[in-house]
Design a protein around this nucleic acid. Structure first.
Lengths: 218, 218, 218, 218
DNA sequence: AATGAATGAGCCTTCATTCAT
DNA sequence: GATGAATGAAGGCTCATTCAT
């Protein structure tokens, strides 16, 4: 209809957009192909035409959300590499919490549902999205704790920090949100900023304690 | 069939047991009434007969798992009320992590799926299971931080501690676990105990830092 | 509705009956579950309830037709075992041709479609229906030719006789029969009886020739 | 694309070739337009563009296979018209059995599926391919039996001979052949030649018997 | 002449629920 | 009190065909 094959691209893209949103709010099983096509104003067979199967669409929709997410948010919080390590940790934590709590960022909403109810379809999630995040966080922590702390301890510290960042993800709701109270971070930006500062302080305190214990043990 | 309604009770209980297990591993949507009845050696109509609907069975199954969980695990970690507050915090943390990582404890597996994919059917979860946990944790934290720290800060600290306890929940898998690497805490008890000690130390360090900041601010 | 669970049995049986008829005329792929259920006045889900899948229904429908067929036609043409071998051969040939050309005998119509377009679902057809037929025919032929004729020759003779019996099967039509001229054996019984006598005579002549050649070769 | 419509012709021919092969192995319903176009490296719309519909392609594909078949095999087995009638019968029988069992000869594979499962699309098959075959066979038989034998008897004899030739067609498989044992004639050429000789001998013996009966009746 | 996106009808199957014993 | 047959709505997917270039 429109010139230049634009229409074609648009249908595929519309499907991806809608699919990412619905998968994020309703989960894989809770989303039907019919829903997706209706919202994307596309034919019921469009999904199978463009993506072969619902499973494939799921994978590509997550990838789409993932790439949109890293386009919007710099994972280092735009802190230069030369800044002190505490500053860089703050940048990482802020960036991650922002990505996690951003209503328009579908990536982590899909990830969360995938973690809770693995479909086995997003193995690449681990590889491409979460593993680098963890690797990077562990590098920062190793820098703070010094080279003599065991890898297990570093791994545990990374878990502690990441858990605090991902924590606000829980209780995020889809359609059925009528039953739930709004989470704190959706009230205003100030509350979110306060939580970020809390996590930074709490984590630095925790790391300090771990290092102290390690040194006293020696 | 047998007199005294005994048979009924047995069937009912079998259904609850099986349902809790399946809901925990496969989620609400991933579990079919037929599955439940087959595993419980019950008639296909038994669920609707005993529980009116799948939704109602879901609610009662979670409650069943919840009550079994608190029967097995003392939420205070069997630390007497008179022990120092740090000891009581350690007891709480250990108890919670144990409940969360216990493969036979279905309660939190259901909770996790409910948090990620709210069906809106477990509003009571919040009220009966999680809220008391949080309340109690906040009380301990308030005791540690002193009465002058703001409620918001106490709430944030509770989130930090709880997030670390619930963190290991993520990545727990049901049927599709063939795709996943085993989590650290399933390797052996020692690793789990080490993580518990880490969370205690990290959290105490974090709380210390928060208190220090608060006092210096004054 | 009707007393005694009769209705239940009837639905299953109705499905089998209708399925056998439709599979016989339209083939496996040409028959839809919806068709079957409509003709059997059953719900669209009835097939999957009673038979799990279309494939399973196909197998059971053939078995149903097979058992009805052997109930109606005695495979030996009701010739006593003590009769001369030529008489017994005539009985066999007549019985087989009757079964093959009987419009109400669905068994061979299904078999024919299965031979032409194997679904791989009726492997038991070979074992249960055709193999015994061939075995029996070979026994008669061996009796006629004498023990010194090679197994290969006996097998070839069996093929010659069987092919003549099954030949009228070809050109049997389903829905699209408006395009085809009626086969000779549907015109009247006399034509069919004449064909039977022809096959008997032709085959006995053939066998005589084979034996003659064998003896002259010696 | 290329000038002169050459490209078109090539695409058209590729479609015909592929279609004949797929229709022969999978049958009309078992073959999809998408399959054909994929194997022929043609656009999904190519079939409808070149042949208007799948039905039309089916007809033309059979005709294509038919013409290729008669180009490769001389229907008289290359026996001169002047040879004795028995020799000419042998030539015919051998030629027909060769065509039927030749794996590369798609014509009869399509015919067989059409006979078992008439789509009503190949009415011309009867007229153009089978009828001449039968006519010719009947002429030979009439020559052997003499002019006084009834037309019905001649027709029956033709059926007997043809059935033996077409018999090996049954059990020929497409994709699902993994379930089937290999037919005798694919083992080696000697087995096939032996079967040809058997059919010739058996048929001559049968015809002799028929003539004898006819003469004795007189 | 040829293409690739798009369509709509239809197919097999699943599943929570109901109904008549 | 308990059962098993039956239902209808819906889900994912296939496929021949059409449409706009």
């Amino acid at each position: 209809m429109t010139p230049g094959g634009k229409e074609t691209l648009q249908t595929r893209e519309r499907l991806l957009k809608v699919a990412a949103r619905l998968f994020a709010t309703e989960g894989y099983r809770g989303t039907t192909i019919a829903d997706i096509c209706r919202h994307a104003r596309a034919n019921i067979a469009a999904v199978n035409y463009h993506f072969t199967s619902k499973e494939q669409l799921y994978r590509e929709a997550w990838r789409y959300a993932f790439q949109q997410s890293i386009q919007r948010h710099h994972p280092d919080g735009e802190i230069p590499e030369t800044a002190p390590v505490e500053e860089r940790l703050r940048g990482r934590i802020r960036a991650l919490i922002c990505r996690v709590t951003d209503r328009n960022n579908l990536e982590f909403q899909i990830v969360q549902k995938e973690l809770a109810q693995p479909t086995g379809l997003l193995r690449e999630v681990q590889r491409e999205a979460l593993a680098p995040l963890r690797k990077n966080m562990e590098a920062l922590i190793r820098e703070i704790l010094g080279p003599e702390v065991s890898e297990e301890e570093i791994h545990f510290c990374q878990m502690s920090v990441m858990a605090q960042c991902l924590g606000p993800m829980a209780g995020r709701h889809g359609r059925s949100s009528r039953h739930s109270c709004q989470p704190f971070w959706s009230r205003n930006r100030k509350a979110l900023a306060a939580y970020v500062e809390h996590v930074v302080a709490f984590s630095l305190g925790g790391l300090k304690e771990i290092r102290r214990l390690h040194e006293s043990k020696r």
